[in-house]
């Protein structure tokens, strides 16, 4: 009984860590690219290497990539703790919901009703497809 309880807690704990890390990663990457500015325009104006240099010199970019790496490896751990058919779709679809909240709070994006509906629909769809 207690063994089952422990495995449920560790599985959902793992899913939570994956979701948190990938949401944090997405937020930092989005913030980094907003600071870099429109890549298409910058490329046309200053060339590809300026774009690359500006992305690589952005500290938010490295925080984002680090968080993404944490998300990837914690996904591997979570997959070893729980069933693939639960962990993969739960982590993928909860990330969409978490990102909508985080983008509203931290990036001050205007998440209107249209985007909430999209986030929920996509999360449900990904949950069904990834399962």
């Amino acid at each position: 009984m207690s063994h089952v309880y422990t495995s449920v807690v560790s599985t959902w704990g793992g899913i939570l860590v994956v979701v948190l890390a990938s949401v944090v990663g997405d937020i930092f990457l989005a913030r980094a690219m907003k600071q870099v500015g429109d890549v298409h325009a910058l490329w046309g104006r200053a060339g590809l290497w300026t774009v690359v240099a500006r992305v690589l010199s952005n500290s938010n970019f490295f925080l984002g990539v680090t968080a993404m790496a944490v998300a990837f490896f914690s996904l591997l751990f979570a997959l070893s703790w729980g069933d693939v058919s639960l962990v993969a779709p739960a982590a993928a679809s909860l990330t969409f919901i978490g990102n909508a909240f985080a983008a509203k709070i931290f990036l001050h994006e205007k998440v209107d009703r249209r985007r909430w509906i999209a986030a929920v629909l996509v999360a449900a769809g990904v949950g069904l497809l990834a399962g």
């Binding site: 989005a30 690219m33 994006e109 990904v126």
Partner: peptide, 26 residues
């Protein structure tokens, strides 16, 4: 291309669009 999209569009706009990858995969 994900980073490029994020440079000119919101995260809540880009993410649903990338989820079309799941559809294509299926």
């Amino acid at each position: 291309s994900y980073m490029n999209s994020l440079s000119w569009a919101d995260l809540t706009y880009v993410l649903p669009a990338t989820s079309l990858g799941y559809v294509l995969l299926a």
